[in-house]
Design a protein around this nucleic acid. Structure first.
Length: 126
DNA sequence: TGAGTGACTGGAT
DNA sequence: CATCCAGCCACTC
């Protein structure tokens, strides 16, 4: 079980029509404070894999652009719109409306990975 | 093997 | 709001 495996496992659980932020995925993968790793992991993922990489966007609610992505950033927005997610005039999505709400079971599992006793702070994403 | 780099974030300004 | 900055760590020469 590698760091990337955990990241991919989380991303695969994001349902269609919803999005998660890099930081959110990082937390659930037991990588609090290391969202950059999520971005790096997604950069390496292949289009052919069954990983919904398009559902991961940055904390500002916009798709992160980079020349390294060779145009897949625009494709990402197109796919999300296909799933019913709306972008405003500034190219952002309303996170309050589309942000993925992980199940409690998943959160507890993440807590376990972190070796935490569980502080019951469930309200963070609600 | 060590320095550079990046699909990022949160807090300060 | 928008910017700037330091922290983070796997990966690549």
């Amino acid at each position: 079980m590698t760091t990337y495996d955990r990241i991919y496992a989380i991303v695969r659980q994001i349902p269609p029509g919803q999005v998660a932020t890099y930081g959110q995925v990082a937390e659930l993968a037991g990588l609090i404070g290391k969202p950059r790793l999520v971005g790096y992991a997604l950069y390496r993922v292949d289009m052919a894999d069954d990983i919904p990489w398009q559902r991961v966007i940055n904390a500002k609610g916009e798709v992160s652009h980079s020349v390294l992505r060779n145009g897949t950033d625009y494709l990402q927005r197109a796919i999300l719109e296909e799933e019913g997610i709306e972008f405003n005039a500034k190219g952002r999505v309303d996170l309050k409306r589309y942000r993925w709400r992980p199940s409690e079971a998943l959160i507890e599992q993440a807590m376990g990975v972190m070796g935490d006793g569980g502080d019951g702070e469930m309200g963070r994403w609600v």
